Simulated scan of single mutants.
Amino acid sequence: MRTALVIGTGLIGTSAALALAGRGVVVHLRDHDPERARTAAAIGAGTDEPPDGPVDLVIVAVPPAHVATALADAMRAGSARGYLDVASVKGGPRRELEALGLDLTSYIGTHPMSGKERSGPLAGSADLFEGRPWVLTPTRDTDTEVLNLALELVALCRAVPVVMDADAHDRAVALVSHTPQLLSSMVAARLQEADETAVRLCGQGIRDVTRIAASDPRMWVDILSANPGPVADVLSGVAADLDETVRALRALQSADESKRQGGVEGIEDVLRRGNAGRARVPGKHGAGPAAYEIVAVLISDRPGELARIFADAGRAGVNIEDVRIEHATGQQAGLVQLMVEPSAVTILTASLRERGWSIRQ
């Protein structure tokens, strides 16, 4: 791949363009808002000048509702050897293209499973896709050259290719991406009118659950509008669990011991099923979540403190598998939770204490 045209310079389009430009591909940028394309060009994602002729690959990075139109325009203009989109929904756009009577041998639907709460070209990053799954949805009609171009794009972005059927992909993202976004927003919405004393008690748990609720509502309306059926199916199951959980909680208020016991069993059931589901979420290097232990260290909010604690862990010969920071409300301090192998806990704890760190249980 020597040349590419990216249509749509939001987060995903700009990030892909930055990755390609950084690896020597000549990238042309186009957006319905020319200012966004100029912004992407200014940060090194390519040029907002149109290509002189056909490019190797057109990458359409527009909202799902506009994917088919943008692809059709590019294909009818003979803009490239191959065409792909990066929308988060795959079945709908392909069916729209088929209905337009286009030859789809030069097209493949794709979806990089990566993103941020921020949007727009300035949120773009060349390493956004690194190590992340990038779904490809070829059909028997897809030309081998186009599949190879898509695989080259994934490799240049340092992502991991995953081949799926388009409709199976849409059902999967409804479960692992679209429904979590709605549930996060629903929980965060409870905070909108909450008493200030309650909000001040927010800890890491509520921050984790509501992190993606900061996403752009307009973008998510576009995504959910393109995949409403599968998302509604997943939410229907969640709603059934919610109904059962509400009944179980009400039963815990009963004076009848048998009803209270039924409530306990209902709550325990959903929590245990949650444990089982969480255990299936891939962890480090794609393996199942490891049983790491946490070493919690009090840390002050000063420049260089994180670097120092990581360096001290390295001196102890301990690999930090993961890290979280729990900030203390109203204080210039917090807890750094260092996730390590169980066998490393004693060594790390002793070593950090020797170097003056305050360890918390």
Score class of each variant (00 low, 15 high):
residue 162 V to E: 11
residue 199 V to R: 15
residue 175 L to Q: 02
residue 177 S to L: 02
residue 86 V to Y: 00
residue 86 V to C: 04
residue 174 A to G: 13
residue 136 L to R: 12
residue 166 A to N: 09
residue 100 L to E: 14
residue 161 P to E: 09
residue 86 V to G: 01
residue 189 A to M: 06
residue 149 L to H: 14
residue 185 S to M: 14
residue 203 G to D: 07
residue 144 T to D: 15
residue 186 M to Y: 13
residue 170 D to E: 04
residue 204 Q to V: 09
residue 107 Y to R: 00
residue 83 Y to A: 08
residue 177 S to K: 05
residue 186 M to D: 07
residue 106 S to P: 12
residue 148 N to K: 13
residue 124 G to E: 10
residue 189 A to Q: 10
residue 114 S to P: 05
residue 77 A to K: 01
residue 153 L to T: 11
residue 180 P to F: 06
residue 149 L to M: 14
residue 81 R to G: 15
residue 205 G to W: 03
residue 200 R to L: 12
residue 161 P to S: 11
residue 129 F to A: 05
residue 155 A to I: 00
residue 167 D to S: 11
residue 110 T to H: 01
residue 191 L to M: 14
residue 158 R to K: 13
residue 133 P to V: 08
residue 145 E to A: 15
residue 208 D to G: 10
residue 88 S to M: 07
residue 190 R to N: 10
residue 105 T to C: 08
residue 123 A to R: 08
residue 180 P to L: 04
residue 136 L to C: 08
residue 180 P to K: 00
residue 191 L to T: 11
residue 178 H to T: 03
residue 192 Q to F: 07
residue 105 T to H: 14
residue 138 P to Q: 13
residue 91 G to K: 15
residue 196 E to C: 00
residue 155 A to Q: 12
residue 193 E to G: 02
residue 84 L to K: 03
residue 80 A to F: 02
residue 114 S to T: 03
residue 79 S to I: 03
residue 146 V to S: 10
residue 109 G to M: 04
residue 115 G to L: 12
residue 133 P to R: 05
residue 189 A to H: 10
residue 97 L to D: 08
residue 130 E to S: 09
